[in-house]
Computed example of a mutant assay.
Amino acid sequence: MAGSLQSSGDAGGIPDARTQISGFVFALLLIDPDLVIVEANHAAEDLLGRSAKRLIGQQVRDILQFADDRIAQRMSHEDAQLVARGLPVSIGEKTRLINLTVSPLPSHPGWRVCTLSDAGQDDMSRSDEASASLAAPAILAHEIKNPLAAIRGAGQLIARKLDEGDKRLTNMIADEVDRIARLIDRMQELGSSKQEPLAPVNLHQSIRSAMATVRAAAKDRAELVEEFDPSLPDVSANKDALEQVLINLLSNAVDACEGAESPEVMVRTRFVSGLAANVMRLGRSVRLPIEVTIYDNGPGLDPDLGDHIFEPFVTSKKNGQGLGLALVKKLVADMGGRISYRRDEARGLTLFRIHLARAD
């Protein structure tokens, strides 16, 4: 397997994994369990000032001397992930600042993909902090997605040398990379300042559409019940955003009550004229008399999370990402609405309540 990552694809066809990795603008190293460099692309040759032939077979610690001992210690753990920016590193006789990622390959214990880039390339003018702040999500997405592409490509390279029965492991790498890429897309949505246009939306049609989607995925894990006020007018909303909110909340509710004796999720709508919440929009008070409540009879959230559940990366799920409810809150706010959470211990119910404006 040892050798520089030169192209072996057909120049007239779709570039293969080796060609793709060779074209990366950041340095990529494939490292074995003994921390020996096994592969290096063109960018690694440029950044490290050595040919691939001189890099391959060398210990990483002999090529990269980190000023922070904790980095070397972390790299010594074969299953440790690492993302670091602006690290001072000695390469030969020079010291420079680099960005570093180290990603283990689950299918090959001890094997890792290491990417490096010159941190100086990421300098931004500090004279426009607002622009930098708006660009931050895009920069973060770029910084993460590029190494992900490298990991995916490296997995494809490894797959070529595996029997068909073992390729499920490299397929797992590809699937996980794709999942993380989708997560990054959701993070970008969360940081987006763009608001979709609002229009009159039939609330009950949107709820039933979301319930149909969740039923198809839930596979009878919980009974979904509706209790609608048929006299409700249209709401002021974005149809796609509203259905995304409802799908997220219904899916969470199904997961939450799965262990209950008779798992049940109910969606209730009503007009709350006398109790309507208000929000300020364009300098004037707007009433929110249309109420949608999603109930589930699960055990409820950890009480310590109650005040933080709409914050990013807060989750009670073992494998949760903690972005779903943060995105829900943003989408509801973009539609001029409000969302709240409450636990009714007396009835053993968890409630998520949305208030929306009626369409003009």
Rank of each mutant, 00 (worst) to 15 (best):
L349N: 01
H108A: 15
D122F: 08
G322C: 01
G283D: 04
D128L: 09
M211K: 03
I63T: 09
T213N: 13
G57E: 03
P289V: 05
K94M: 13
V38I: 12
M266L: 14
M211G: 00
M124N: 11
G336L: 01
G120A: 01
G274E: 14
E291C: 03
L275F: 09
I14P: 07
D68T: 02
H108W: 03
W111Q: 05
Q81G: 13
V177S: 04
F352P: 02
N248W: 10
G259Y: 03
A138C: 06
F228T: 01
Q73A: 15
A159E: 01
R215W: 04
G336Y: 05
I14G: 12
L323Y: 05
A27M: 04
C257H: 03
A149W: 06
R70P: 00
Q81A: 12
N41E: 08
V328W: 12
E143C: 06
T293E: 04
I294C: 00
G336T: 03
Q58C: 04
L356D: 06
Q20W: 08
G298V: 02
I184F: 00
V201R: 01
Q6K: 12
T213C: 10
K330D: 11
Q244F: 14
S7Q: 10
V225T: 14
L134M: 09
P263I: 12
M1G: 08
L48R: 12
E291L: 06
A67P: 00
V314I: 15
K329P: 05
L351M: 07
I309T: 04
N278K: 14
D123L: 15
G165C: 13
I354T: 06
N41I: 06
F228V: 04
V272M: 15
L28Y: 03
F66P: 06
E39P: 02
R70D: 08
Q188N: 10
P137A: 09
L140R: 05
Q20F: 13
A237E: 00
G49P: 02
I139H: 11
L190S: 02
L148E: 04
E143H: 09
I14R: 14
D334H: 14
F228E: 05
L305Y: 06
F66W: 12
I247E: 12
A2H: 04
Q321S: 15
S22R: 02
